[in-house]
């Protein structure tokens, strides 16, 4: 599946039900304008526009493509650097560093080629990034390994499930907690009792 695109950034911002606004209210909400804005409306609007940032935001295929390609170039350069610290050997008898060094160099060159291609291309379609539900799922996923062992696998996954049900599936919190609890009971029976899987118990169990 390819990237999700939107026709126009402004449309996407206005129509999307999950748009998160990080900009000061004054920038967009006429009714809620502050005293400061009434003193100098033009200056405040300009200042607010500079700070304006809402989610999901859009980026052109060209600019996003360049950014991704440059990150890949960086990845290639880092691979070359780390490989050069290993025994590279020589062309006839390569050492452990030879293969990754060659691959890293090739990656950097090809990614630079993609960056140049993107640089020459027109701005193209706009790609939406930072969707609310996507950010919540990524944040929740990154929290799981932090709590998995200290808190225990089932309590962590229960909280994870309840959070996603409440925030992404938009289920009432009480129902989300009950569903997550039942889900964890099923997980405990299936994975730990039936399959004999040893998951971190944590201090609660």
């Amino acid at each position: 599946m390819t990237g999700q695109t939107v026709a126009a950034p402004a449309d996407a911002e206005q129509s999307h039900p999950d748009a998160i606004r990080l900009a000061p209210r004054v920038a967009r909400n006429g009714e809620g304008e502050t005293a400061a804005s009434s003193f100098a409306p033009a200056a405040a609007t300009a200042r607010a526009a500079r700070w304006s940032f809402s989610l999901p935001f859009t980026v052109s295929n060209r600019r996003g493509g360049i950014a991704i390609a440059l990150l890949l170039v960086l990845g290639g350069v880092l691979t070359v650097w780390q490989s050069s610290l290993l025994d590279v050997g020589n062309v006839a008898l390569p050492g452990p560093g030879f293969f990754p060094l060659a691959l890293g160099a090739l990656l950097a060159v090809l990614a630079a080629g993609v960056a140049v291609d993107c640089w020459r291309a027109p701005e193209g379609e706009r790609i939406a990034l930072g969707h609310r539900d996507v950010l919540i799922v990524i944040a929740a996923l990154f929290a799981v390994p932090l709590a998995f062992e200290p808190l225990g696998a089932l309590p962590t996954l229960g909280l994870f499930g309840a959070a996603l049900l409440a925030l992404v599936a938009r289920v009432r919190i009480a129902l989300a907690v009950i569903a997550a609890g039942l889900g964890m009971a099923v997980c405990w029976y299936f994975f730990q009792v039936l399959l004999g899987l040893q998951l971190p118990a944590g201090p609660l169990l």
Binding site: L141, V168, V171, G183
Partner: peptide, 19 residues
């Protein structure tokens, strides 16, 4: 609804990957 399936799929994935 797809959003209801997401926690189920992710929890199975996490347990599977860890195991």
């Amino acid at each position: 609804p797809y959003a209801w399936l997401v926690p189920i799929i992710l929890i199975i994935s996490i347990i599977g990957v860890y195991s």
